[in-house]
């Protein structure tokens, strides 16, 4: 059985995909489904959901289409989540590999830096970074990655430390490979699987941190975000709670979907091991 089929055979993976795929499709089709500016005023303000067929999820305080915002917001949430996780995994894998393979001094220095980052809560780090640099999409992504890379770095380092002692690394030295080539071509690809296993947790937390930053008004002001929508709805929480609840549900669905995919992948790996 291939790994993909093993993955798809788990209930977690199926449930996760059933939730995440529609979100991805909606996010990708946002410009087609809701062309034009989602921030444009299209109707009377505070129209509740399921009242008007043209505006199925109603409108917000200014009369903007909630569904259009939700779909465009999915773009931002997923983009930031994936980009931040990818950057964190890349930074972490490279730093972990250098720490694990580069000798005692490199290891000591890099691991102390990693610990320094780990002692600061990821959200505070992101908050501080964005308030200094300014809220753009790139700075939000980098701010989240800044707090997320230590975990993959530590996992990568531990893995590299064990692979480093394998005979095939000695064999690579014997056939004259250079240290950098050995670290990144021989060791890193084999150290990646446990590092990648962290990706679901990182994506999920990145989506939540992005939402929290946007909620505090530190998201990219030119983009619609779920966190920003919740913040918008906060002022009318008693009279029009749906404005906060709808993007809140979207957040829960996205995070849960990513988490379930991670669980599915872990289960698939376990079942592979028990067959072997």
């Amino acid at each position: 059985m291939t790994s993909l089929r093993r993955f798809l055979s788990t209930g977690e993976a199926r449930a996760g995909l059933a939730m995440l795929l529609p979100l991805i499709v909606l996010a990708l089709l946002a410009p087609v489904l809701f062309p034009g500016d989602p921030m444009a005023i299209v109707g009377q303000p505070l129209l509740p959901p399921f009242q008007e067929s043209a505006l199925p999820l109603g409108t917000d305080r200014l009369g903007r289409d909630v569904l259009a915002q939700l779909v465009h917001g999915a773009q931002t949430s997923l983009l930031v989540g994936l980009a931040a996780a990818l950057s964190a995994l890349c930074i972490g894998a490279v730093i972990g590999t250098i720490a694990g393979f580069g000798g005692r001094v490199a290891d000591e220095v890099l691991m102390r830096i990693t610990e320094a980052f780990q002692t600061v809560p990821a959200f505070l780090l992101a908050l501080a970074f964005v308030s200094v640099i300014g809220p753009t999409l790139a700075s939000v992504v980098f701010a989240i990655a800044l707090g997320a890379w230590p975990a993959p770095a530590r996992v990568a380092r531990a893995e590299v430390l064990s692979i480093r002692e394998k005979d095939y690394v000695a064999a690579a030295r014997v056939v004259g490979k250079r240290p950098l080539e050995i670290a990144f071509r021989e060791i890193l690809p084999n150290a990646l699987p446990p590092v990648l296993a962290l990706s679901s947790v990182i994506v999920a937390s990145a989506i939540l941190i992005e939402a929290a930053l946007s909620f505090l008004g530190l998201g990219d002001p030119n983009r619609i975000t779920w966190g920003g929508m919740i913040a918008e709805g906060r002022t009318v929480l008693r009279s029009a709670s749906y404005l906060s609840i709808i993007p809140g549900i979207a957040l829960v669905v996205a995070v849960l979907a990513v988490y379930l995919l991670g669980e599915g992948a872990a289960k698939a790996r376990l079942s592979k091991r028990s067959y072997a």
Partner: peptide, 21 residues
């Protein structure tokens, strides 16, 4: 590295002496 060309090695465990990939 240049001198390794003339002195090579065969290991005991064929499982671990080749990169899994």
């Amino acid at each position: 590295r240049a001198r390794r060309r003339h002195i090579q090695m065969v290991f005991q465990d064929t499982n671990s002496s080749f990169n899994p990939r």
